[in-house]
Amino acid sequence: MDDFGELTRAYERELRLHCYRMLGSLTDAEDATQETLLAAWRGLPGFEGRSSLRTWLYRIATNRCLTTLRSRPPAPVAPFELPEPTGHGEITWLQPFPDALLPEARAETVEAVELAFVAALQRMPPRQAAALILRDVLGFTGAEVAEMLGVTETVVKGLLQRARTGAVRRPAETDTAVSKRFAEAFTTGDVDGVVALLTDDAWLSMPPAPHEYHGRAAVAAFLRTSFAYASERAPALRPARANTQPAFAASLDGAFAGVIVLTVRDGRIAAIARFHDPALAGRF
């Protein structure tokens, strides 16, 4: 067991990130990673060495994730009456990924970790997403991907062709000045101050709730309702990093109040994702 731990320890972080891309949920990714290592331990006598240990582990992890994707929990209900949303997001299981958990050395690009890309993967059929991640992000060969998914290379090419049309990657920016101004406005209940930092087509989402708000006016309406619900209680924001993007761990009256992740484009905030999932407490 000690030898097995030494062999697999070097891959645990990258396997967790792979499972996160597949599942969109840090909680599910950690479960899938542990299930992968347990399955590898049990299946070690049958490992014939025809592929590298890393490739074998990724095959197990990918198939574990494909199994997990068959079911998802229902969306929760907000504790106050919300203004009419612009739309309802279907990816209610999305969670942020702390930068502190990223592998120390990543060959893939930064934008392959960002929330927008992970969300785009969740909208794809699972095998398309798996093929895109394994081939374009992680750099496995077409033959290796085909072997992992149990299909032919021709099938992999077809999966990739369809997946690439829905996975445009555009790197976000790290703008500490914008993040600082956002925190100052948000913690003082200054709706106009937050809205002034937004792009005209900014989105606000709040997984695991499905409600989404598009545009400055819609975001402002939600923030006014949210701040009114909090009344005189001022939230506290502690700087963090998630998905290589600026983020904050929020607290209200000393209790965990979720994680906020900002997407910055051209010096303005293009998206605010507010994650109220209590499972994130302690991870940021």
Rank of each mutant, 00 (worst) to 15 (best):
M148V: 01
V194N: 08
A129L: 10
I91F: 07
L102R: 12
A249M: 11
R283Q: 15
W93K: 12
G166V: 00
R233K: 04
A228H: 07
W41D: 04
T225R: 06
H88L: 15
A217R: 11
E90N: 09
A167Y: 05
G267M: 11
A185M: 09
V219E: 14
R42V: 00
V261Y: 03
A240I: 01
R21K: 09
A234R: 13
V195F: 08
L121N: 04
A255Q: 12
Y11L: 14
W93P: 01
R9T: 12
A32V: 05
L53W: 15
E232C: 00
A185Y: 09
Q245E: 09
E232Y: 06
G150K: 00
D3Q: 04
L69T: 03
A270K: 05
G139K: 05
N243M: 09
G87P: 00
L197W: 05
P278A: 02
A217Y: 07
E108Y: 09
P76N: 07
R241L: 11
G46I: 09
A209N: 05
R283F: 14
T244G: 13
G89T: 02
G24K: 12
G24R: 11
T62K: 14
R9N: 15
F186L: 05
A230F: 06
N63G: 00
N63H: 02
E111W: 14
F227W: 12
W56V: 06
H18C: 03
T244R: 15
A120W: 02
A250K: 08
A236H: 01
L38V: 07
A116Y: 00
G258E: 11
R70C: 12
R216Q: 15
